[in-house]
Every structure is written in C-alpha cells, then in structure tokens.
C-alpha cells in the first residue's frame, strides 16, 4: 500500500491496467448486453421486460460497490494522510453517481409495467435515492472549498457517514416489508435466477467493473496531474515573491 502512495508509481500502474480494463469493459458489456437482448429467454412472469434487469442490477451493484470503495479510500486518506487515496475516492464519485442514476431510472421504467407504478417510497427505493444524494453531496463538497486539503477532509467524513446507508440498502428488503423483491443472486440457497438469465447478468456485471476501473484510471490521472500542477504553480509563485 505504501508503494501505491507514490503518485508517480500509481499513475504508471493505472496506465498499465487501463488497456485491460477497457478490454474487459467493452467485451463484458457488449457480450453481456448482446446476450441479454438477443439470446436469453423472456421471464415466465415479466415477459421481455426482464431485459431491463441486465442494466438495472449491475448498475445497482456498481452504485454500492463504488460507494464502498470511496468509503474505504476516504478512511485510508483520513488515517494515513494518503494523497492518492483521497483522489481515488474523488475520481470514483462521478462513476458511482452515474450508475446510481441508471439504476434509479431503469428501476422506474421496470416498475411502471410490472408493479403498476413508477415509484414508491419503500425502504429499498428510498435508501437508493439517498445514495444518489450522498454522491451528489460528496461531489459538491469537494467543490465547496478552495483549499483542497480541507475539501478532501470534509468530503471523506461525509463519505464515511454515508457508508451507514450501504447495509441499509442491502438488507432493506429483509428488514422491512418492501414492494421491491428480495435478493435473487446473493442468497443463502444460491441464485434464484435461471442460468440462461443469470449468465448474461454476471458477464454484464464484470464489464461494468471493467468500465469503472477504466474510467477511474482516466479520472485519477486527471486529478493527480491537476494537483501536481497546482503545487508547481504555488511554489513558482512563492519563489517569485522570495526572489
């Protein structure tokens, strides 16, 4: 981990991973969604609308996974003052927010024909909406301070506070009566999804992970270079004043 604290080494690692992440993203998303649209069967109850799941479910997983990654990076940044960790968290947030938005909108598009409503305020849907607002708040907090070290600390604390929401999202369908169905894939009895529907779902999910790493590698590079440029300009200005 200390090796990764060095921004230059981290940038080299990210550049090395990037083509593989891009390949996983493109192959996973094209194969997974192509399979889901063209080959996999309709569901015995939902009919063709089940295909929305191939977008909705991996997006929901990514929304939660990326928030967890932000919370862990924020804890590392707060405790060890790890400069790369807080930029990984910052660079992840727009990706997580994008997946959360996709999850909410596709869920709504599924809910109208299946449940009979675009939206209900049950525990699962409400906690997922809160996750979206946490992402927006986290991004806004970074922009709210001129001093990046103060912005980083405030945003990291918000990320940790918001992490309480993750188990609430996951277990909301078990703890309370919700309109949303309970877990289908990660259950004690094993997946309750037929393999013909499960496989494209899992391949799409792998593609979505690849997409996250790919975009993260671009955004983290931007964050690190911007911060180094800022430091260069600051020290140049200080030199000019001194000289």
């Amino acid at each position: 981990m200390h090796a990764l604290a060095n921004p230059a080494r981290f940038l080299r690692l990210m550049a090395a991973i990037r083509p593989y992440a891009a390949a996983v993203a493109i192959i996973g998303l094209v194969v997974g969604l192509g399979w889901g649209l063209l080959i996999s069967p309709r569901d015995y109850q939902q009919g063709e609308t089940v295909r929305i799941m191939y977008i909705h479910v991996p997006s929901a997983w990514m929304a939660m996974f990326i928030y967890a990654a932000i919370a862990v990076s924020s804890a590392v940044a707060l405790i060890w003052r790890h400069p790369v960790a807080e930029l990984v968290a910052k660079a992840s947030a727009p990706v997580g927010a994008a997946f959360t938005l996709i999850c909410l909108v596709t869920g709504s598009l599924w809910g109208k024909p299946m449940w009979g409503t675009w939206w209900v305020w049950d525990a699962r849907l409400t906690s997922m909406l809160i996750l979206f607002f946490l992402y927006l708040g986290y991004i806004a907090l970074w922009e709210a301070f001129d001093d990046p070290s103060r912005a980083g600390r405030a945003a990291a604390i918000l990320a940790l506070v918001g992490a309480v929401n993750l188990p609430i999202i996951k277990f909301s369908v078990d703890w309370w009566n919700t309109l949303h169905q309970p877990a289908s894939v990660l259950t004690l009895e094993g997946p309750k999804i037929h393999p013909d529907i499960l496989w494209p779902l899992l391949i799409t999910a792998v593609g979505a992970q690849g997409y996250y790493v790919w975009i993260l590698s671009l955004r983290v590079r931007a964050e690190i270079l911007n911060r180094q440029a800022r430091i260069l300009r600051f020290s140049a200005a200080a030199d000019r004043r001194a000289g």
Partner: peptide, 11 residues
Amino acid sequence: LAKHDENYMPP
C-alpha cells in the same frame, strides 16, 4: 400494485 418475487426463469 403487483409485487414481484425473486425468481427469474424462462416460461
């Protein structure tokens, strides 16, 4: 409102 279950399978 209809409540969906957690099972997915072809007809």
